[in-house]
Write a protein that binds this DNA or RNA. Structure first.
Length: 249
DNA sequence: ACCTATGTTGATAC
DNA sequence: GGTATCAACATAGG
């Protein structure tokens, strides 16, 4: 589930109720989620410190501390953050235990989430929710890759995943396979507006799995506009649904 | 039972 | 350099 809207909700949760609480201990024994850190390393580095800010770009989150290292978290493919709830072993892959008895947990069955200190974020592009029209045209429109692949490239624009991109391209009536550099400036501007609108709807509606199109995104599903049966294929390495009538090449 | 599917990213190969 | 492919993980479903 986690795309930009879920990451933002998680970030806001920490900002609202997770800051300025003394860290008493860190559960960091999952060497895959915490790679390349050894068990105990994050614990030693964060113990006694407090999170003082909650930042996000795309699906990446990071939390600065008072004089200690920055903690980076990523939800991966199935992770979520829980604050002050009952521990759920073995699916809590990482957690901060606060001195007040509370706990911030990364719960993730798949183990594709990450918890790392002092991240390097130079391969994370501008956030999809506030990228400028100029940056969008330049970063998206200059590649021959299919437009869908380009929108999912986190170094070009950060925050969009498979479901959200299918929703956005359907709203924009653009075929996912169209080479990005064949889009006109007007089409790129329009596409950016659809990116922002879809994100706004997803954040208000509670996540990337809802939308005008996404509920129909399944085998035998039909286009909510023209009722044609949806096409299914692989674009950018991901399962893709689109309307073969509405979404023009 | 077996095979395929799944929101993620990163390493590797062309 | 940009793009495509596969692997990493664990679980669910046909």
């Amino acid at each position: 589930m986690p795309e930009l809207p879920e990451a933002e909700r998680a970030r806001a949760l920490v900002e609202l109720r997770g800051l300025n609480r003394r860290i008493a201990a860190v559960e960091d024994s999952d060497t895959y989620v915490c790679r390349p850190h050894a068990p105990g390393e994050i614990h030693e580095a964060l113990r006694g410190h407090h999170l003082i800010s909650a930042m996000r770009r795309g699906k990446s989150m990071w939390f600065e501390t008072d004089g200690g290292p920055t903690l980076y978290l990523h939800l991966g493919m199935a992770g979520r953050l829980l604050l002050d709830e009952e521990p759920h072993e073995p699916w809590d892959r990482f957690a901060l235990q606060f001195e007040d008895g509370g706990r911030l947990a990364l719960r993730d069955k798949r183990r594709l989430g990450r918890a790392v200190l002092d991240p390097v974020l130079d391969r994370v592009g501008p956030d999809a929710a506030d990228i400028t029209p100029k940056a969008f045209r330049e970063r998206i429109g200059r590649s021959r890759a299919p437009i869908k692949a380009r929108l999912m490239d986190q170094s070009a624009i950060a925050g969009l995943g498979n479901l959200l991109v299918d929703e956005i391209l359907w709203r924009a009536s653009l075929a996912p396979t169209r080479p990005a550099n064949e889009l006109s400036d007007d089409e790129l501007d329009g596409l950016r507006r659809h990116v922002r609108a879809a994100l706004r709807d997803a954040m208000r509606g509670g996540g990337a799995h809802i939308g005008k199109f996404t509920p129909h995104r399944k085998k035998g599903g039909h286009c909510p506009r023209c009722k044609a049966e949806l096409a299914r294929g692989t674009v950018g390495g991901r399962t893709t649904f689109w309307c073969p009538v509405d979404q023009t090449e």
